[in-house]
Design a binder for these strands. Structure first.
Length: 510
RNA sequence: GGGGCCGUAGCUCAGUGGUCAGAGCAGGGGACUCAUAAUCCCUGGGUCGUGGGUUCGAUCCCCACCGGCCCUACCA
C-alpha cells in the first residue's frame, strides 16, 4: 500500500465558512476516504490561516487580543467540518507553536542558502486585501477590489530571490508533467513563469501579528509566506517529529484556481530555495458560481453575493449531510467552474438519490424481506451484473486516481441504473419463492453491497445505513477495497431490514 | 494596460483534426406495478459564441472580435 498526503488550503479565519470552502474540503475528504479504503496510509490536512493585519484589526475591533479572536474564529471551521463529517487527520492553525518553529526553520534554510536579501520596499497597501498594489493596478489610488483608499507604505523588507528560479521552475514543470492538473491550469502557471519573475518582499516591520524573523527581530513574515509552509508544519519539518521524508513524496495540494500563482510558482520556488523537492502534485479546482457570480470573499466584499445566505449548515438542515456532500462532489468536475443552485441540488437529490439509489434499495429489500431467506442467498458468478459491476469498479478506481471524484460517482450511477434495468428484465415481483427468485435477488443485493463501498467516500453515513439494513458483516469502509470491491462477497448475517426511505423525495416548489 | 481560462442540445455539463457531436435532467411516446407517483424501453432536438485563416477536411489548430471569469507579485 502507498501513502497519500492531501491538503486543503488553510482558510482565512476572518471568513465565515461557506459553501465554497465546503466544496474544496468535502472533495478533499472524499479523496482521503477513498485512499484509506484502498489501504493507503493517509494524512488529510486542513486548517486556518490566522496571521496578518486584518485579523489583528478584527480582534481589536471586537475588544479581544488576536489569539483569543482566532481561537474563536478558527473553531467555526472546525465545527463546520465536523458537521460535514470531514475526516481530517490534522487541523493546523498558523498560530500554533509547531508552525512558528517550522516556519523559522524553513525560512532560515532559505536565508542561509542565500536567497534572501534586504531592500527597501515601496507600495500602496490595502488592509482588506492584505496586499500591495502598483499605482497603475490601483483605481486612482484606491483598492480596485475594496474601493478603499490605499496607504502609501515604505519599509525595509527581506526579499526572496524568486527571479533566480525561472529556469528551475520551467525545468521542473517539464520533468513533472503531472505536477499541476488539470493541464490548462498547468499552462497558466507555466506562462506566468515564462512572462518573467520578480523578487518578492516576504517580511513586514509595520505588522506584529505574525511570525518573527529569527535572524532579524522586528520583522515578521508576510502572511502568505507563513501560510504556505503549513503543509510542511503538519509533517514536522525541522522539528523532532520530522516525517517529511515519509510524506512529502506523496503530497497533494487541492486548491482553488485563484491561488495558482502562490502554490504553483512561489511555493515550489521556496521549496527549492530551502533545498527541498517541491510538493509532488497540485490539483486545481474551479469555482461554484451562484447565478453566474463567484463564491469568494472578494465578491462578498462587493456585496454581489451574500455568502452567509449559503452556509453549509443551512443546506444540511434542508437536504442532509450526505446529500450535500454528494452534490458537491458529483455536480462539477474538479478543475472546472460549476453552477451552484437550489434547483440543482434538489434535482440531484430527487433523481440520483431518491429515485435511483434510494428506490433501488427500497424495492430490493422489500422483495427480499417478503419472499427470501437472505442468509442463504449467494450471488452468481455468471450474473449479468458481473460485467457492469466490473466496469463501474474499474472506472471508479481510475477516476479517483485521477482526482476526478465526480467521474467515480458517474460510473457508480451507471451501475445503479444497470441494476434497476436488471430487475425490470427479471421481474422478481412476479416470481414465486424459490431458486430462481433467490438467484435474482442475491445478484441485486450484491450489486447494492458494491455500491455501498463505492459511495462510502462521499456518503459515509448512507453507506453505513444501507450496509446495516442488508445485515452485512463489518462496514463498507472497514475492509480494503481491493479485496472487497469484487463481485461475489455478499453474505447476510440475518434477514434484511426494509427501513424507511433513505431519501424522502423533496417536492418541487418548496 | 498585461497574462490566462471559458463560451457545445430548454437546463447543467462531457468530448474529439475526419463515419450521422455525446450524457444526465427537463419534454414526448410506450411498458410495468416490487418500489419513495419510483423503475425500464424508445424518442424529438444543437449554425459546437461571431467573422476570417491553415488543412483534402475543424466544434476541436491560428488570428480578430463579442460575452463571462481568474490573476496582475516594490520596474509604475
Amino acid at each position: 500500500m502507498g501513502r497519500f498526503y492531501l491538503t486543503t488550503p488553510i482558510y482565512y479565519v476572518n471568513d465565515a465558512p461557506h459553501v465554497g470552502h465546503a466544496y474544496c474540503t468535502v472533495n478533499a475528504d472524499a479523496m482521503a476516504r477513498w485512499h484509506r479504503l484502498r489501504g493507503d496510509e493517509t494524512k488529510f490536512l486542513t486548517g486556518t490561516d490566522e496571521h496578518g493585519q486584518k485579523v489583528a484589526d478584527a480582534a481589536a475591533k471586537n475588544g479581544v487580543d488576536p489569539q483569543t479572536w482566532t481561537d474563536q474564529t478558527s473553531q467555526r471551521f472546525r465545527d463546520a467540518w465536523n458537521a460535514l463529517d470531514v475526516s481530517y487527520d490534522d487541523f493546523i492553525r498558523t498560530t500554533e507553536p509547531r508552525h512558528t518553529e517550522t516556519v523559522q526553520k524553513f525560512l532560515t534554510a532559505i536565508y542561509e542558502n542565500g536567497y534572501l536579501y534586504k531592500d527597501r520596499y515601496h507600495g500602496l497597501y490595502c488592509v482588506s486585501c492584505e496586499d500591495y498594489f502598483t499605482l497603475e493596478s490601483s483605481d486612482n489610488g484606491s483598492c480596485p477590489i475594496h474601493h478603499r483608499p490605499l496607504t502609501e507604505m515604505s519599509e525595509e523588507n527581506w526579499f526572496f530571490r524568486l527571479s533566480a528560479f525561472e529556469d528551475r521552475l520551467l525545468e521542473y514543470y517539464e520533468r513533472h508533467p503531472g505536477f499541476v492538473t488539470p493541464e490548462t491550469k498547468r499552462n497558466e502557471a507555466v506562462s506566468f513563469v515564462k512572462s518573467g519573475l520578480r523578487d518578492i518582499s516576504i517580511t513586514r516591520t509595520s505588522i506584529d501579528w505574525g511570525i518573527e524573523v529569527p535572524w532579524d527581530p522586528g520583522h515578521v513574515f508576510y502572511v502568505w509566506y507563513d501560510a504556505l509552509i503549513n503543509y510542511l508544519t503538519a509533517i514536522g519539518y525541522g522539528r523532532e517529529d520530522d516525517e517529511v521524508a515519509e510524506w512529502w513524496p506523496s503530497s497533494h495540494h487541492l486548491i482553488g484556481k485563484e491561488i495558482i500563482r502562490f502554490h504553483c510558482v512561489w511555493w515550489p520556488a521556496m521549496c527549492m530555495a530551502a533545498g527541498l523537492e517541491p510538493v509532488s502534485h497540485v490539483q486545481i479546482h474551479g469555482w461554484l458560481l451562484v447565478g453566474g457570480q463567484k463564491l469568494s470573499k472578494t465578491m462578498a466584499a462587493e456585496g454581489g453575493v451574500r455568502l452567509t445566505d449559503i452556509s453549509p449548515v443551512m443546506l444540511t438542515d434542508e437536504f442532509g449531510v450526505d446529500p450535500l456532500r454528494y452534490y458537491l462532489v458529483r455536480e462539477t468536475a474538479l478543475g472546472n467552474d460549476g453552477e451552484f443552485s437550489h434547483e440543482g441540488i434538489t434535482a440531484r437529490y430527487n433523481t440520483d438519490l431518491a429515485n435511483n439509489l434510494g428506490n433501488l434499495v427500497a424495492r430490493v429489500t422489500t422483495i427480499v424481506a417478503a419472499k427470501c431467506d437472505a442468509t442463504t442467498l449467494v450471488p452468481r458468478d455468471d450474473s449479468e451484473l458481473v460485467a457492469p459491476a466490473r466496469e463501474a469498479v474499474d472506472q471508479a478506481r481510475v477516476a479517483w486516481a485521477r482526482f476526478a471524484p465526480s467521474q467515480a460517482l458517474e460510473a457508480t450511477w451507471s451501475f445503479i441504473g444497470a441494476t434497476n434495468a436488471f430487475l425490470e428484465r427479471h421481474t422478481p415481483w412476479k416470481m414465486e419463492p424459490g431458486e430462481s427468485l433467490d438467484a435474482v435477488m442475491a445478484d441485486a443485493l450484491e450489486a447494492i453491497r458494491l455500491v455501498c463501498i463505492l459511495i462510502s467516500p462521499v456518503m459515509p453515513r448512507v453507506a453505513e445505513e444501507i450496509w446495516r439494513r442488508l445485515r452485512l458483516a463489518g462496514s463498507p469502509s472497514a475492509a480494503p477495497e481491493e479485496e472487497y470491491l469484487v463481485w461475489g462477497r455478499y453474505r447476510a448475517l440475518e434477514a434484511v431490514e426494509k427501513g424507511e426511505p433513505l431519501f424522502p423525495r423533496i417536492r418541487s416548489g418548496e
